[in-house]
Design a binder for these strands. Sequence first.
DNA 1: CAAGCACATGAGCTGATGTCATGATAAGTC
DNA 2: GACTTATCATGACATCAGCTCATGTGCTTG
Lengths: 304, 304
Amino acid sequence: MIELRHLRTLVALRDAGSLVEAAERVHLTQSALSHQIKDLEERLGTALFVRKSRPVEFTRAGQRLLTLAEQVLPLVRMAERDVARLIGHEPGRLHMAIECHSCFQWLMPTIDYFRDHWPEVEIDIPGGHHFDPLPALAREQLDLVITADPQPLAGVYYEPLFRYEGLLAVARQHRLADHAFIEPAELAEETLITYPVERARLDVFTQFLDPAGVRPREIRTAELTIMMMQLVASGRGVCALPNWALTEYLERDYVKAVGLGETGMWSTLYAAIRDESREQPWMEDFLRTARETSFAVLEGIKPA
Amino acid sequence: MIELRHLRTLVALRDAGSLVEAAERVHLTQSALSHQIKDLEERLGTALFVRKSRPVEFTRAGQRLLTLAEQVLPLVRMAERDVARLIGHEPGRLHMAIECHSCFQWLMPTIDYFRDHWPEVEIDIPGGHHFDPLPALAREQLDLVITADPQPLAGVYYEPLFRYEGLLAVARQHRLADHAFIEPAELAEETLITYPVERARLDVFTQFLDPAGVRPREIRTAELTIMMMQLVASGRGVCALPNWALTEYLERDYVKAVGLGETGMWSTLYAAIRDESREQPWMEDFLRTARETSFAVLEGIKPA
DNA sequence: CAAGCACATGAGCTGATGTCATGATAAGTC
DNA sequence: GACTTATCATGACATCAGCTCATGTGCTTG
């Protein structure tokens, strides 16, 4: 018997383009998917996709099942949502703060989707708050905080969203521009541009420079990514940003990017929420949507 | 995660009206269903149906999931059928013979449905054959035979369709009419009306009379059920027929029916097919449809 | 109030469905 | 064209969901 599990796998496979990556997305091993699909294929009596091609190519039978998945999975989602709504009738609140300045790119589509499906939940990003977001979350002034550095706090749970690589943006003609990656020492003579937050919250320091005992020659700050890019492009410094925050500038060939260290500098982005809200159905839905939107909108990120 | 299995269970539960019977239909134990649904309910955080009522009553959440099932399951079926069709392009043939004279009642709707969904399969009930159907099946003159007494035959497989109870139809004013059931000896003074086939193929004899060494006073035959009913109603004999073949006459209070023996005389109806055709997708579909149609159309039958 | 019936529940088992380790195969790379 | 690096397949083993079995509980009925 065909099950929803199979349909979910096939969709992941199409989105990912390879078994290995699809496996990451559904949080199983590549082997598991291989077995699972093989099994299904045997029962159906036909192959579902051609493995020796990148991205994988679906057979007609595979395409038919994908179509089915496209029809069915949204229906299932809607039903689950309806059931969830039947349970708790208290209207929800979702006030959030974003520590990661470049997150709006995927957050906005997420919020749009969410507003459509949970009209009764009050969603907002209150501006002009000068308090520290995570404590504010704990004392219920906020309900969700997007952050890349979780700190243990009573009653606060960190739901991993995805992993991303921090890259160093440099001017096109910069001496480091054609390196595949750089070592910490190579930043000793550079001006590093950062967001205006404590150093302890910046991965370039905590993960890359501090362990090697290196300090950049100078540090200057900028509020917005676009401002950073201008400074970088004009050769007045370099800056470390998530890969996906850079893609649009890279595509326009505005700046160049190089890896930080041989293995790259990877961080995980978390949604911080209070323990209680973990099981609110709309919160589950928001997190799921956030993840899906991210994978659809951003490039080069990995499941947590 | 909700799975198709759950939806199938819910549909069975609604159709059956009780866990016990639903369990029979999906070929699991009552316990399994109880666990399965409890599990689902826990994950959803709400009850799906009220157990203390017959037939069971669904909560709003349960109804919502039933709606989902109604939307989704047919889609899944269609997809499976399409996939099946993609595999084998040889047009199929489905010529059948019906040993059980009263089967047209559920067979006709089944054939109608089937013709719609598998137009490329040539379906027919060839008339005027004077050969024995089961050997004809083995030598590929037929592809399916509906029969109640399977006989071991090389290459022939008997797929059980459902179980039914054989009842004795008697005139309304007959001396046995108000018995709940009768013993074999009570037939010794009766005229028994049967279809014109060998005695060895009639359950009244093989299952009821022969073991007790009883013979009815007289045996006469009739070709059609309606003729038998006329004879019975006018007090010229009694006859044993499947419960569902009698319901329409019982509802019109044309005759009365009594059980055969204390536990009733139960038989299983089989679809005889050749081994090879077991895995033809359209054959699988035909059998499934036949079963479903039977349960929808007939009353008082049980899963095999 | 005993008997019958339907559902719940806990224990225990089993097969389906995963992981791990490894091998085969194809696609770059020098 | 060997070497490297990727993906997918495969077999053996592990685990856990989901089943059965045995039994308990509560409702209905005569």
